[in-house]
């Protein structure tokens, strides 16, 4: 509960001072190009990986990317790129 409140304050602060929200609220940045490429930044790591589903751990939630022939084009300390036939991007809270 208190985490959400802090995030709320952070978001308002970011809006007020025009600062990127992902920096202030420590949020994961997802950048999708069409339906075949997705870039992720500011995440914690991979929880599971199959060619149909990739589960990525964010700071306060999980991101489930499902599709066909999913492949991690690169995986580095800063970001990662997933390519393949993406069908669904799901946020799992908690």
């Amino acid at each position: 509960m208190w985490k959400e409140e802090i995030n709320g304050i952070g978001e308002r602060f970011a809006e007020a001072y025009s600062i990127p929200k992902d920096v202030v609220a420590n949020a994961t940045l997802l950048h999708m190009i069409g339906k075949s490429e997705i870039f992720l930044e500011n995440f914690k790591g991979i929880i599971s990986y199959t060619c149909h589903e990739i589960l990525v751990k964010g700071h306060d939630c999980k991101y489930c990317i499902s599709g066909n022939g999913l492949m991690i084009a690169y995986y580095s300390n800063e970001d990662m790129k997933i390519s393949g036939q993406i069908q669904e991007v799901k946020i799992i809270r908690g």
């Binding site: 060619c51 492949m71 300390n77």
Partner: peptide
């Protein structure tokens, strides 16, 4: 690997 700054690419599962 990511934590140790080891870069990986073309990761796929077969």
């Amino acid at each position: 690997c990511r934590m140790h700054d080891i870069f990986l690419w073309n990761i796929k599962k077969e």
